[in-house]
């Protein structure tokens, strides 16, 4: 027990030393912060959207791989600083109907029963982000997000994909508005690596299956000048149609960009 405690304490001290010495590329330009990418800079992941800095005031983004089946685009706008916090808002639109209709099929790949057809759905997402540097070069970001959908017709409530991560993100397509509150802290470990820890709660304005929470943790590793590996976990809890459920899943993404 003592050895474990000693090893843990040494690890903490070592990490803190590294943090104090380092500067981590992308810390203030990261996804899910109130900071924008500088003009002509871009970054994209496989799952994370492509973000392109337009000016000091605006950044546009879109999940490129999903574009053919889920047309989507968004803009992040910087609003300046107040009380040590930098503020931004993000606004995006997406049309998930084509991908949902594609997943509603016979055989392998049929995430949704083929008996369901989805009408036109326009998902509208507005969020407010506030970021503030902390000690040890860390950055705190808090976010409030509001999502609702315009639907071209009724959607069968049994056509849901009852999986963690997916279900809460699709909930507002079916019924209610989704209110998400999130906070994350990211910090450098050394000049090649950083960590991020975050929590997010999802509240859906409807009578049941309306609360979800996620805790995420990532390590970023700068593999080369233009490439970073993001790997970690997603621990989720929520009330699903089948009951309350905990789930831990790994999470990996590869980020490309010209941040430096």
């Amino acid at each position: 027990m003592k050895r474990t405690f000693l090893a843990f304490a040494l690890l903490l001290i070592f990490t803190a030393l590294l943090q104090a010495q380092s500067q981590f590329t992308g810390r203030f330009m990261g996804y899910n912060t109130a900071y924008l990418l500088p003009e002509k800079k871009w970054e994209s992941g496989i799952r994370q959207p492509l973000r392109v800095g337009l000016s000091q005031k605006a950044e546009i983004y879109s999940t490129v791989l999903a574009l053919p089946l889920t047309p989507n685009a968004g803009i992040k706008i910087a609003w300046g600083e107040l009380g040590g916090f930098r503020f931004a808002t993000a606004h995006s639109l997406s049309v998930p109907s084509p991908v949902l209709n594609m997943l509603s099929r016979n055989g392998i790949g049929g995430f949704i029963s083929p008996e369901f057809t989805f009408p036109f759905i326009l998902s509208i997402n507005n969020s407010v982000l506030a970021s503030r540097p902390l000690c040890y070069s860390a950055l705190l970001t808090i976010k409030a997000e509001f999502l609702f959908a315009l639907r071209g017709g009724e959607i069968d409530p049994q056509s849901t994909i009852d999986l963690p991560i997916m279900y809460p993100r699709m909930a507002h397509y079916y019924k209610g508005t989704s209110v998400r509150l999130a906070a994350n802290v990211r910090a450098p470990i050394c000049h090649k690596a950083g960590v991020e820890e975050g929590v997010e709660v999802f509240m859906i304005t409807r009578s049941g299956n309306n609360f979800f929470a996620e805790n995420t943790g990532y390590v970023y590793w700068k593999m080369c000048k233009k490439m970073r590996l993001k790997a970690g976990y997603n621990l989720s809890y929520g009330s699903y149609p089948f009951g309350n459920h905990w789930q831990l899943w790994p999470s990996v993404d590869l980020l490309l960009g010209n941040l430096r």
């Binding site: 016979n106 055989g107 392998i108 790949g109 049929g110 083929p114 008996e115």
Partner: peptide
């Protein structure tokens, strides 16, 4: 199964 991604079987 937690999820069967075939024919919409799901959980």
């Amino acid at each position: 199964a937690q999820f069967i991604a075939s024919d919409g079987l799901g959980r």
